[in-house]
Design a protein around this nucleic acid. Structure first.
Lengths: 122, 122
DNA sequence: GCGATCGTCAACCGTTTGGTTGAATATGGC
DNA sequence: GCCATATTCAACCAAACGGTTGACGATCGC
């Protein structure tokens, strides 16, 4: 998978990664701190972060021992632009839209994965 | 994968499926007609369509022998809403944004998969 | 220098994905 | 009834995914 759009959407398809993005919306974080609320290993989180990084959704800067992760909203914005092309040729079908929203979809300001299955975004 | 957002983003992560969505932007199509520009088997396209359907991105209605595929932009719109939460807390970084756009990202009004690798959207 | 911390790498594992082929199940036209 | 058309199903395959564990390379504090 080499296509930027492929990588962005594939990165967003995982609830753990969406949760990480939501966390980074508040502040830059070290890898260890990103991993802390999740129940999986640090290595797993490290993999998720590298996927997000290759997709351009975050950047990582090493300072000393600590590698800081920073949200890069532009890749997301680009994908959003692509998607919006589909929504604008006709008025919103509110029924179907709200049916979809009701099934889930919490906006990205909720981002605290405190439960056993840490998934504020999914 | 049962989460709606998971399914929408996973569906969008494949260039063939994005191309199909772009084609359906113009008109409803039969499965066979959707498959025609692609180099893969009809069965493969049928699988792609069922993935798009389960994600809510298209609907399918059988009329006689023919199953018509119709774009359902609301699922896309919901995902777009989720994404836009990330882009709005700070002004657009135009440099990074255009760097991303330059790498690819043709808007969904180009949708003719005529080349060997049919991928108008990616 | 030494031990603790931070993070990645490598190897492995089970599941999912994206594709193939061939058979099967409608349906439509004559 | 028969054949062609439209679409899916089932079995298979290689590759990718999401996770684990254990070892490793840096870096910090003392």
């Amino acid at each position: 998978m080499t296509d930027p759009l492929d990588m962005v959407f594939a990165a967003l398809a995982d609830p753990t990664r969406r949760a990480i993005l939501s966390m980074l919306l508040e502040d830059d974080m070290a890898v260890t701190d990103v991993a802390e609320p999740f129940e999986m290993s640090l290595a797993a989180i490290s993999k998720h972060l590298s996927i997000l990084s290759r997709a351009g959704l975050i950047s990582q800067e090493r300072r000393g021992r600590v590698k800081w992760c920073k949200l890069e909203p532009d890749a997301l914005r680009a994908a959003s632009v692509w998607m919006q092309g589909f929504g604008q040729f006709e008025p919103v079908n509110l029924d179907a839209f709200e049916r979809f929203l009701a099934a889930e979809l919490s906006p990205p300001d909720d981002h605290t994965p405190e439960t056993g299955s840490p998934d504020p975004a999914g």
